[in-house]
Design a protein around this nucleic acid. Structure first.
Lengths: 335, 335
DNA sequence: CTTTGTGATTGTTACGTTTTAATCAGGGGG
DNA sequence: CCCCCTGATTAAAACGTAACAATCACAAAG
């Protein structure tokens, strides 16, 4: 009953050999127009669809790429994913999405799935600094491009935005606003973005003639709105609320904003608040959020273009490390 | 150089036959403890990972499911996707995500990819009412479960939230607030959710002793924040702004809110505004948004459980059509 | 009439796994 | 000592496709 139609069935029906059908599928220019048209119409008639697994098995590689992100609930990553998907589907590739939720174990499981599926390449925003797993993938012939993460080596492609500059811009802006005490609300220390933005923040402190050690750091286990709100509660309970707060991403900032407003703290009158990423919702919040904008969609596009170039032209491919620059977007949440 | 290690290599090294290695992988209880342990350690030693395509080819089905959503940029769908992914990975399945962006062509291309990959099943929030493509998938032995879409037939599983009730609750709430004129800001007419919420809205009008035809409909080509803002501009330009607006989802509502506030319209004093979905950002907006909450994450979980049950126990599986009920969440944007 | 060349098509093999039936070893009962 | 049973292991045959060398048809050139 549930008969699946194969390349052989098409061949028999069209009166050609299976090889010819395969050629129609993969190198149509090699086959005479008349037979090509006949085969194509037979394919439609029988409702044949290529068996991707058989194809992958024989060809040695698939037409899929894996994308591993830290938090698919963060609009920053959905924007990146949109860029990835657009380029991938333009070039006939499918995207397998893996969400690590910041858990190393889940990230590893996702990479295992990618390896089992023999994806052509992997795009990953690594959740920590261990390059071992990625080298392992490369050892299996799977190309890897780092997304939103600068390359520590030159034998790989990477696309990133300068987070040190971004952190510096954020804190410089807060200092411009006349902030006395400053706080940095961040996520897990293993996340590089958090570290780099902090480095930038400290540089701006120093440049502004302040002691970087004055920067009060509040580290949360996640970078979500809920965590931001908890950070607000913590600061309020401790009575240690600074004049100005730099949050490592917009979700933290939006949660922080909610927490502060609920407690009757006025933004920006009592506290200045700046986020990071400039997600779509930053401009729609209660007090619209000053933030650091990144070319998010572009990040996904460029990373995928580099990846597919490396896959398709391994001989001529030159590894590139691309670094975009962020922008400051001033809104209501800062003085 | 780039040698990929196969089941045969493991077998040779461990001094057993390939069949035994396969058994260790798939039916470990069938093999003696001593050999099982030896094989397992050889697998680790050689860094063997199973070739998913070969496995799929031979077994006739894969360990992946396809998820096709209308807009991955909408937090509603990322919440659903989170539920799907959690259940899938608990049961050893990988998820291939397809984003149709509301385009029928893209949806079709995604379904083709799913078919080529021989996914075990498909979870889909269809972007229109044509069941033909889905029956085609079923004819190929691929189970299909509808997500956020009620079943029109009893021979399939479906998980949905009652949108008629939701629409009715929204408009009843606006009428309670004393609204005179009412507007419904919606997306493309082919999207069922838009239609159902409108039906509910009209029912509430009638129940409130109003003529349902009084409901001013503004249909936008997309259900994004940008479209919502354009809707605001359109209403303002026409001078046809009603007392109260019901937006078919929160993104439209947030865009509408932005558009109104920029034009100096006060919410809720001049206009009451209610959204739909109760996404995380609804409570964080300039004026926090009254909305209709849905059990989003649960939707994804339950749908996936039904799908995998259907795949794994086709004999005993009983199709279910599950309908959740929405909740009204009142915040500042309505009187 | 034969040879050569060219473009189109075919036959065959291999990819890495799962699965079934067949084989094997060893022990207990007759 | 033989037979049968059980549990563990193996050998071999697919699964559907891509790739490559081999073949074919046919026309142009000699």
């Amino acid at each position: 009953m549930m008969t699946t139609v194969s390349i052989k069935d098409v061949a028999a029906r069209a009166g050609v050999s299976p090889g010819t059908v395969s050629n129609v599928l993969n190198r149509p220019e090699k086959v005479a127009d008349s037979t090509r048209i006949r085969v194509e119409s037979t394919i439609r008639e029988l409702g044949f669809v290529r068996h991707g697994s058989a194809s992958t098995l024989r060809a040695g590689h698939s037409r899929t790429v894996g994308l591993s992100v830290i938090d698919i609930g963060n609009p920053f990553f959905t924007d990146v994913a949109a860029g990835v998907e657009d380029v991938a589907s333009e070039r006939g590739y499918a995207v397998i999405l893996g969400n690590s939720s910041g858990s190393r174990m889940k990230e590893e499981r996702n990479l295992l799935v990618f390896a089992e599926q023999r994806v052509r390449g992997v795009l990953i925003t690594p959740s920590d600094e261990d390059p071992g797993r990625l080298d392992q993938l490369r050892g299996r012939g799977i190309c890897v491009v780092l997304v939103d993460h600068p390359a520590e080596r030159s034998d790989q492609c990477a696309v990133a935005v300068n987070d040190v500059t971004g952190g510096s811009m954020a804190v410089a802006h807060l200092l411009d606003g006349g902030a006395g005490s400053l706080g940095y609300v961040t996520g897990p220390a293993v996340i590089r973005q958090c570290q780099d933005r902090k480095r930038g923040a400290e540089q701006a402190m120093a440049a502004g003639g302040r002691d970087p050690r004055e920067l009060l750091e509040v580290a949360m286990p996640a970078m979500t709105a809920k965590a931001g709100q908890q950070a607000a509660e913590k600061l309020l309970a401790e009575g240690s609320l600074p004049d100005a707060l730099f949050c490592a991403n917009d979700l933290l900032a939006l949660g922080m904003l909610r927490g502060l407003l609920q407690a009757g703290v006025r933004v920006p009158d009592d506290v200045s608040l700046i986020g990071y990423d400039d997600i779509d919702f930053a401009s729609a919040s209660t007090v619209s959020l000053t933030s650091i904008r990144q070319p998010t969609y572009q990040l996904g596009r460029v990373a995928t273009e580099l990846l597919l170039d490396e896959c398709d032209n391994p001989a001529t491919h030159a590894h590139q490390q691309i670094m975009f620059q962020p922008d400051l977007v001033v809104r209501e949440s800062t003085r």
